[in-house]
Design a protein around this nucleic acid. Structure first.
Lengths: 320, 320
DNA sequence: CTGTTAGCGCCTTCAG
DNA sequence: CTGAAGGCGCTAACAG
């Protein structure tokens, strides 16, 4: 493998000159630059990234921590994030924590080890004492001082969805959603639900428990059994919504005639299309943009925002 | 950030000794090892990965190239691969090529740059002249000599699926699937279809064109329009199968009474469940295992297989 | 404008 | 069993 000194030798220049033309830094005469570039091409030279990192203390790599990538929401946003990072010259290291705390804690080590410049955290776990010196941002979670949190406008969007359900004539509206293992912006959805139904005397019908990915169907059934009288339901999450829909149909209900369903997330559209859900769609593009922007701001020592809220889109489908 | 020499100084030992206890290599007296470990803990020392890589020429990192991660099949297998790699002490760098050739070509550079020890290739593009000295394995694709190819037993599984359709009484069986941009094991499915229907005088009903992710519905409609008389269809891919199912229902057909559908891949189960498809399920676990095993064999200079074929499972659902 | 030099943090002989 | 020394490939500061 050709190294810088090989290039220098063949081009009859010093090693520093080669570095300058490779990095486009400092002054190099056109004539010399040309010569060096030719040698680089002919030798098929590429700078060794480990050496660069060692020297500069930068890896141009960002870690993405998700519970699992095999979930429509995480897959969709990971895609966007990878693309945003790429635009900014960063690579993505994917880590599926599978909700294992040890694996999530590895993150700290990974940035301490200088394997990545920063990390993005999608987690259900508790994380205390993340040193603010590390560049970390979180989706939906407040991990601590100086850890930027990016989230959708969960409260307002949920409110809007519920208002829509009301305007469609619903009298008994339920809520079903997973309970995060940790304080999270997602709980704003439940707060909006409570605030909204409270003044209406329609009573609360809530399922709010930890729901592992893969077990959604169980809770969907449970909801129908507990709150069979509902004529509308706000579902926090696409997968759950689909399971609820199926369960409702199986139980002989008609959607939307007997039961209106609104889901949150809105990422299933590409993968299936029966039915088209009415949904609060998180703006994954804007979300990723904000995530990557704040993260890189922090990595590159620029000012960054502690909190960014991104508005959702409300999409009317066939389930209301 | 504490470095090795800090540890050495505090522990009153040489820097080499520290290295030895960190790596568990060479001889160190228990007494000294203890002392060093204590200092390491108290200083919160972690070896700098860039330095290690520079020295050892190993990054313990593997690249995964997929067209997009926002697709049930890729998301599902990426999850498995990440897990297998983790077990083997490797990290995963995710690159979504979005079918951009330039981005895919970056791979070569990435391993040349020493950013990763090897790579896994899921691609629709052509790739010539990948030097066999790089550690690369491919799913479903023959990228060249010394590039291991891992694939499902596409031919046999398709044959089995078609036999099942026949046994269920189908008289006019169609085939719909995306055409890879490059020679691929996936085309074995079509070959099996042709071989099977050939001797039966039922005529070929085939859609086999490049189908971009996101445009599946178009081709589903097209299939029904072209081959409305079909009573059975083999669909190469879950997403396509779902779109075809929806289109069939919309057109007034009953599934399975009027049209029986078998899909290939079998990864949608977790994400939706209406209906449960009869499907040839690729064994993602075994596939990932084989991929990672051959890749690491090659990276670590052990013998490796040029080709591994993994059997699929045939799952009978409600669409036949 | 260009060559030389001194490390970045670690691993690995090589003497002791 | 342990310490010292050289160098992995590159960048950045410093003389020319």
């Amino acid at each position: 493998m050709a190294g810088m000194k090989d290039v220098a030798r063949f081009a009859n220049v010093g090693i520093g000159t080669v570095s300058r033309v490779v990095n486009g830094s400092g002054y190099v005469s056109d004539e010399v630059r040309d010569r060096v570039n030719k040698v680089i091409a002919s030798l098929n030279y590429t700078p060794n990234h480990s050496a660069q990192s060692l020297k500069t203390q930068k890896t141009k790599m960002v870690g993405l921590f998700v519970p699992t990538i095999n979930h429509p929401f995480f897959a969709a946003i990971a895609q966007q994030i990878e693309s945003m990072l790429d635009k900014n010259g960063y690579k993505l290291m994917l880590i599926c924590s599978q909700d294992k705390v040890e694996k999530e804690n590895g993150i700290i080590k990974l940035v301490a080890q200088n394997r990545m410049d920063g990390a993005i955290f999608f987690t259900h776990q508790e994380h205390k004492d993340i040193s603010p010196k590390y560049s970390i941002v979180a989706l939906d979670r407040h991990l601590g001082e100086n850890i930027p949190c990016i989230a959708s406008d969960n409260y307002e969007s949920t409110q809007k969805a519920l208002d829509y359900l009301l305007s469609r004539g619903c009298k008994k509206i339920g809520y079903i959603g997973g309970k995060p293992g940790v304080e999270s912006e997602v709980s704003e959805r439940l707060r909006a639900y409570r605030d909204t139904v409270a003044g209406l005397g329609m009573g609360e019908r809530i399922i709010y428990e930890p729901i592992a990915h893969g077990t959604e169907a169980v809770y969907a059934e449970k909801f129908l059994k507990l709150y069979g009288e509902c004529d509308g339901v706000f579902v926090s999450g696409d997968v759950l919504a689909i399971k609820l829909y199926s369960a409702a149909i199986r139980s002989g209900r008609r959607v939307p005639e007997d039961l209106k369903i609104i889901s949150f997330d809105g990422v299933m559209g590409n993968w299936m299309d029966t039915p088209v859900f009415t949904t609060v769609r998180q703006n994954l593009c804007k979300l990723s943009e904000a995530i990557v922007e704040q993260l890189i701001n922090k990595i590159e020592k620029r000012d960054y925002l502690q909190r960014v809220i991104v508005p959702c889109d409300f999409i009317i489908g066939e389930t209301t």
